[in-house]
Structures are given as C-alpha cells and as structure tokens.
Computed example of a mutant assay.
Amino acid sequence: MAQQVRGVVAPGKGQPVRVETIVVPDPGPGEAVVQVQACGVCHTDLHYREGGINDDFPFLLGHEAAGVVESVGDGVTDVAPGDFVILNWRAVCGQCRACKRGRPWYCFATHNATQKMTIGEGPAAGVELTPALGIGAFAEKTLVAAGQCTKVDPTASPAAAGLLGCGVMAGLGAAINTGNVGRGDSVAVIGCGGVGMAAVAGAQLAGAAKIIAVDLDDRKLKQARTLGATHTINGRTADVVESVRGLTDGNGADVVIDAVGRPETYQQAFYARDLAGTVVLVGVPTPEMKLELPLLDVFGRGGALKSSWYGDCLPSRDFPMLIDLYRQGRLDLDAFVSETIELDGIEEAFAKMHRGEVLRSVVIL
C-alpha cells in the first residue's frame, strides 16, 4: 500500500524549497523502497533548484543517502528488507556494450525506478515528482531501482556512508579510478570543495608522495592538510602553474585533478602537469563554457586528458571496499560531515555551502 511521508520539494526555478507530503508507491518489479537515515546536501541539489539540470519541476531533492531497505518488488535478489544500503544514481544494466565488455562503470543504459512518487496534499496533490538523480532522498522514504541500492557494513555511520553516494565518491574515484594515482606519485588538486577534498583523501589513500591542494580560501586549504595534502597553494596570491612546478622539481605533477570545472582551472591543470602526465576533469562545467588550447601543446605534452564521471565508480565494487577502509580508520569519511540538520534546514544549508562554510551539511531522518 502506498505511503505518505515528508520530503523536500523544489517547486519551481529559483523558488525556495519546502517540506511537502509525498506519496511513495509500493515497489514494483525491480524496485525498492528505502527508509532514508541520512542524506548530504550537495551542490547538485542546488543546481536542480536553480533549473541548472533541467526544467522537470517539481523536483524531490536529495541523493547522497544511506538507509535501510524496507521492501522490494518482484525479481529483486541483490538486496532484501533490513539491508543497510548506500544509494547510487547509476544502476547498471548489465546488457549494454560497456557492460558486456566488462566495463560496467561506463554503463550506457543506467536506470531508475519506473514508478513516480507524487505530491500528496494541497492544490498540487497527485502531481508527479522528478527525483534528483533518480533518488529523491530528502525524504523519510524513497522509491528507487533496486540496482541503486548497494549493501554495506551496517555498523557504518549513515551520515558518513551516504556521502559516498555522490560527491565523496566522485573525488575519491577521480584520484583512484580515473587518475590511477600510484605510490610515490605527485598529485595536484585544484578546488577544495567536497569533491576536491575527497580527491585529496583519495590521493593519500593511493599512496601519493606529494599532494598539492589549490584553492582561493585559506580555510579550505587548512582543512585539506588534515585530509592528506602535503602542500597548499592559494590561487589568489600565487601563480598556480608555477607554484605546482616549483614543488615538483620544475616538472609539474604526475596527476592534476580539476575539481572546479572552469576553462581557467582546466588550463592551469593542463600546464601544471608533468610531460606525459594526466589531467582529470571532475568539476562540472556549465553548458556555455568553452576551452581553447594550442593543439600543438596537446600533442607535444603527451599523457592523458580524462573526464571522471561519478569517479568512474562501480558502486557494487567500490562502496563496500571504501566502507571497509572507513571502518578500519584508513578513510576519514566523518571529516566530510560539517553539520547535521533536519529536513527544514535545506535552504540555510544551501546558503552555508555557497559561502564555503561547510563541506557537507547532512540531513538526519
């Protein structure tokens, strides 16, 4: 039987979010209903509210979440009621050309739940909601495709574990999966928001010898040192490219990760890497941005220019492994939780995020 729960809805472009009653249907074939325990406030949720993703309003926001499976539909075998899971926004299909080639992290046909959640009360009752990234987890319960649920160690803190659902996984994966950072490498990370901080932590986890954090905010640079940065550069007062080269014997870093996603930061990343080094773009550009580079430099410097989408992660492989490292004390996911809030605190959390005061505000349900 369908349930009514509270959830945070973005009703229209630029409008403040509000807590609404929403209707969560029983899971159909291949679907699961999850009781959400914690969900991080990500920049992507703000992009949805501002109409920066698409205009399929109203949105049910929230996607960096962990919780407990309440019920499953027909044909679901990988998770069961009572399982503690992290939600992901890329349920792989197993049938596309990427999956059949043994590269499911590139799946070209990821999917979400088929049924729609709806607004439950008021003038908009019955209106279908678009869940953010196919999840919609600023809610007491949500409906997802069962493949979006990854079972992990239930002793992990939901507030910390849920952050692997998006931003932290994107940064860790940019370093470990896409950048292939190895022992002894030098790494520079441009931009120390949540994703960039996670890239710093990922570089340390991979054994990088030198980790250079770059940002415009000394507060963030100070925190980057607690997560593994060995050196910091404030881009307001120093030339980023020359500073990175100066810290790497004049050569440039083996891997440079652009966690901002602007033409100017990408150019910095391109020229701050060593010959035959790797650039990883994990910051998300906006549609109007254009990049201009001398083609001869692209050819002459060699190496690899990569984009990292969701950290090139495979949730079924990466989430349990990273939670195990967290439980062993080798990955400090708790450091990314700046504060815990309630459902009605989302707008203030957006403001704090915009001001650079938090890595992540986390809604506890």
Rank of each mutant, 00 (worst) to 15 (best):
G184K: 12
V195I: 15
D324N: 14
G356K: 05
A174V: 05
S307L: 11
D297C: 08
L221S: 03
Q267M: 11
T130I: 04
L295H: 02
L314V: 13
G14R: 02
Q328I: 07
V195Y: 05
G193D: 01
C192W: 03
L281A: 13
K100G: 04
V23L: 08
F350Y: 15
G147Q: 01
P294E: 13
D55F: 02
V280L: 03
L343W: 07
G182Y: 08
D26Y: 01
G202Q: 05
H43L: 11
R225F: 12
V255P: 00
S71A: 15
P315D: 06
V255C: 02
I135V: 11
V92M: 04
G207E: 04
E20A: 04
S243V: 06
V362M: 10
G246R: 03
G173P: 07
G261C: 08
D74I: 00
L359W: 09
P158T: 10
A109D: 15
I211E: 01
G28R: 07
Q204P: 04
G40N: 02
G165H: 05
P29Q: 12
G30P: 00
Q328L: 13
V92S: 09
S316G: 13
I341A: 10
F299H: 13
T118S: 04
T230W: 05
C39N: 10
G179S: 10
C313R: 06
V33I: 00
C39A: 13
P263M: 08
T248S: 05
P81N: 01
I211V: 15
D74Q: 14
A188L: 04
G303M: 03
A125P: 02
Q268V: 12
G191T: 13
Q148M: 10
G102A: 08
R245F: 01
A156S: 14
S361D: 13
N177F: 04
A124M: 14
V19T: 15
G134R: 00
Q148L: 09
A159K: 11
H63K: 05
Q3T: 15
G52A: 12
V241Q: 09
